[in-house]
Design a protein around this nucleic acid. Structure first.
Lengths: 300, 300
DNA sequence: TATTTAATTCATTATTGTTGAATTTGATAT
DNA sequence: ATATCAAATTCAACAATAATGAATTAAATA
């Protein structure tokens, strides 16, 4: 059954005339005759009665009624696909690491979604390593995270610097200092995050270079919990600056860090093979980039 | 969107391979490539990702999910139409007059419908004139009735003789007779049916010929009510023999009629223009004919 | 009977779908 | 690296079929 012929048939029935159907479809009227004859031959049944005026056979009635919703569905589907192709609609699957997930993304996504009502977004919040796997496997369109151990199929584009600061108890010996350096970290017990955190890996490397091979550390699973441990005087912690800014920090001193401790580069992780990028995902990525990327950082 | 291409697409996704889709559809594999390329060009979107292994883009997923039920619908519809064409299913619209409607048809239709579970039947029970109109207008496929004033578009094929008999009160002067003739009808008040009944018209003609121009008549709307009027001694009535046979007739005498009073020819009324006849209707007509038609009568 | 309108037929033309051979691509084995 | 293999693509040639206009038929109107 040819879709074109079905459309023609619909119009013939609607107008009760071959000529008018031909007019509307910009066909010669012989074409209309041919299409219907082919349809009738294919189905082995007359569809129209050509008497004094056009009439429908029972088969014609059935075809008319049943093909109408089918054609509508087809149009609808075609439309949905066009919307997908233009990025008007779509499903964007994003991966994000903390603290971007909690502190930066909510407002941005809210704005993006209200600007693009046809687009749905789903979020995976996990470690850079887990996100890299998901991106590589095609479960995510892209991820905002730090640079993973580069797999060949993935690309990473730096967007911004995630700055870290030190949290100290008010009565801590280092509280008098403006800036904390790597060397200072021998002075007290250091509170660190779980093994998955990329900043922790960096910290370990820095401390090794500085010669602080053995250090009194305590592992705390959650970044947000860290400040309460600091407050209790258990030690000092290094956390993203944005956390300290957004969550009211009280009874705890905030100090800047120096040198390589300052921060980590965050950016977007994508899959080379995913091109051409789904338009909705592309739109979303561009939106996030325009709000997250810091000039100069993308060359790093 | 071409249906063939959609089917091809479905198979590619199902098998995850162009070659296997081509095999199953008996296409060259280049054909499969072409069909998908055309589809993608038409929709302005990639549908499949050709990497290490075949994958679906978001548009591909959408198309795959949405086109599946559409193709199923199409097959179903095609099947329904085939059934219609073979007469396995269909809707037969029959007109019938009394007494056939009440006494002959129920058992026949029951058998016919259980032999043809796919066929639906609707019945219009009315006078020959009304049925002739419905047939001419295409509201009925055919009617079982007496011969109407022949309109050129209609054809009538005699099937059987509807025999009439006389009902008399037990104490009636004519009760001693074996057979009632037209001449006997002067003897008493005659109970007759409504103006629409063709037998009544015939009766009027016969009586005119016999010279009984004025006759004491009483018009009773319903045939089945007649016997109660006869029972009460209001007069004699002429009714179809089948009525007397099926409804237990008691306290009323049944007598045969002679000559032209004996009965009326019933048969099938159809529309010339309705050919080719809907197969289900044809099947039903054949079935009824085989049970109703009396040999010899069809030549009348 | 003439006239008009609608549908059909048929031969021609245009379009498109299909194909095989050659080529490219990616994966696997050597 | 290189050879090998399977899968997908490209391309030119071919086949199928869809569309058309002119002529014809059928029915409706004047």
């Amino acid at each position: 059954m040819d879709v074109k012929a079905l459309k023609t048939f619909q119009l013939i029935v609607k107008h009760g005339s071959f000529v008018r159907a031909a007019d509307e479809l910009n066909y010669a009227q012989s074409t209309v005759t041919m299409q219907i004859q082919k349809l009738e031959a294919e189905l082995g049944t007359a569809l129209l009665t050509r008497g004094k005026e056009l009439g429908l056979t029972e088969a014609g009635r059935l075809l008319y009624e049943q093909s109408l919703p089918m054609l509508k569905n087809m149009e609808q589907l075609e439309n949905n696909l066009k919307n997908l192709a233009t990025g008007e609609s779509g499903h964007v699957r994003i991966g994000v690491t903390e603290p971007t997930a909690s502190y930066r993304l909510p407002a941005m996504l809210k704005a993006f979604l209200s600007e693009n009502p046809g687009i749905r977004v789903s979020l995976e919040i996990a470690s850079t390593a887990a996100l890299a796997d998901s991106v590589a496997a095609g479960r995510l369109d892209f991820a905002v995270c730090t640079s993973p151990g580069l797999q060949s199929e993935l690309f990473f584009e730096p967007w911004f610097q995630e700055e870290f600061i030190a949290l100290l108890p008010s009565d801590h010996p280092l509280a008098g200092r403006e800036v904390i350096t790597a060397g200072d970290l021998t002075a007290d017990r250091l509170l660190i995050t779980a093994a998955g955190c990329p900043y922790r890996r960096k910290l370990e490397m820095v401390l090794q270079e500085t010669g602080n091979i053995q250090l009194d550390t305590m592992e705390i699973g959650s970044m947000t919990a860290l400040k309460y441990y600091v407050e209790s005087g258990l030690g000092i912690a290094l956390v993203p600056r944005i956390m300290a800014e957004r969550d009211g920090i009280s009874r705890v001193e905030v100090r800047a860090l120096s040198g390589t401790l300052i921060g980590m580069t965050s950016g977007v992780l994508g899959r080379e093979a995913a091109y051409p990028f789904p338009p909705a995902a592309h739109k979303c990525l561009d939106y996030l980039k325009s709000r997250l990327a810091q000039p100069g950082k993308e060359l790093q």
